[in-house]
Computed example of a mutant assay.
Amino acid sequence: MTSQKIRVLVVDDSAVSRQILSAILNADPSIHVAGEAPDGETAIRLARSLRPDVIVMDIVMPGLNGFLTTQQIMETTPVPIIIVSGIEDPDEVGIIFSAMQAGALLSLRKPAGPGHPNHLKEARDLVWNVKMVSEIRVVKRRPTVVSSPPRPFSHHNRGTGRGAPVRVIAIGVSTGGPIVLQEILSHLPAGFPIPILIVQHIAAGFSEGFADWLSQVSGFPVRLATDRASLKPGVALVAPDGFQMGIDSDHGIHLVDAPPENGLRPSVSFLFRSLAQVCSEKTAAVLLTGMGTDGAAELKHLRDLGAVTVVQDQKSALVYGMPGEAVRLNAAGYILTPAEIADLMVDLSQK
């Protein structure tokens, strides 16, 4: 029956796009498109009246764009929101992550129409993610306030790192990651001396814009990684899509056209395994919110080799798949909130 299906509201100013999105979603027997909206104002009204389980929304619309619409919905009638977009211009991608800052859970490339070689894959991705986010409980979001300063790190929560000075910090994250990364990086002081490597699962074409957005909102230098680039103190490098990212024996970035791992490229598992081979005892590895198990086994291997290993705590994680698997494997030397992770990173930088 329809009442047992995942009820979706589709929001897009293009009638053709609404038709394509609705056809993809209605083709799955567990999903029902409960309504369509051509603009943000209508979406806000229908979110209130229909109470959908998930909203699938374009970002560029007349009147209220996807960011402003997300902001108003999450402040009044919170619903899991997926942003779908064809934007690839790095200067414009930032609006997508602003929507995620306002409460949207993830962003996907807008599926191509039937007959396009990417249609089936992108349609499957959309359906899978709608099912995934329908299980996430979201709460009302209030207008952004200035973050409180970081708290001193609590030494009683120390893990099992063996005391070697940390020379690189690697972070793996998926669903819910942009906002957590923003919180962590914004807590780091100017002149933070350790290079940071980030694998964020993200839709193809969005990596450069994501790096630019994260740098702007956190105040911490963030760049898109390039092959053979040197690790620089106080700079975070984001893995580009379409490659696996590791480091070589000279501690430079190594981008590899290798197969996906755990269905992902870039994958956290590849980065963590690379660090285990090159500088395990001088690594701090962090696994944050995300669906699946990417990086969990490799985090355990790093811990066994003497690395500092950190997992986001369940209460603060939007999705506890990746960190939860790491805890199950006893891979976590520390289990911390994002603010506490930042405190630990500062503490490690002072050794």
Rank of each mutant, 00 (worst) to 15 (best):
P195V: 07
P195G: 00
I196S: 01
I196L: 12
I196R: 03
V199C: 05
V199P: 01
Q200T: 00
H201S: 07
H201M: 06
I202A: 03
A203I: 07
A204F: 09
G205S: 03
G205V: 06
G209V: 05
L214W: 06
L214Y: 07
S215K: 04
V217E: 02
V217L: 03
S218W: 04
G219S: 07
F220H: 06
P221T: 07
P221W: 04
P221S: 12
V222K: 04
V222D: 02
V222G: 02
V222Y: 05
R223N: 07
T226A: 10
T226L: 14
A229E: 13
S230V: 13
K232T: 10
K232P: 00
P233Q: 09
P233V: 11
G234K: 08
V235R: 04
A239S: 10
P240M: 11
G242R: 05
F243D: 05
F243L: 06
Q244V: 02
M245Y: 02
G246Q: 03
D248W: 01
D248Y: 00
S249N: 08
D250K: 13
D250C: 08
H251P: 00
H254R: 15
H254A: 15
D257M: 14
A258N: 06
P259V: 09
P260Y: 12
P260F: 09
P260V: 13
G263N: 01
G263C: 08
L264S: 09
R265Q: 09
P266F: 08
S267E: 08
S267R: 12
F270N: 01
F270S: 02
F270L: 03
L271M: 12
F272L: 08
F272E: 03
R273E: 14
R273N: 12
S274K: 00
S274Y: 01
L275R: 03
L275H: 02
A276L: 14
Q277T: 14
Q277V: 12
Q277C: 09
V278P: 04
V278A: 11
E281F: 04
K282G: 07
T283I: 06
A284L: 09
V286E: 04
L287N: 01
L287W: 04
L288Q: 01
G292I: 12
T293H: 10
T293V: 12
T293I: 10
T293C: 03
D294N: 06
D294I: 05
D294R: 06
D294F: 10
D294T: 06
A297Y: 12
K300S: 15
H301V: 15
L302E: 14
R303L: 15
D304G: 14
G306R: 11
V308M: 10
V311F: 08
Q312I: 10
Q314T: 01
K315R: 15
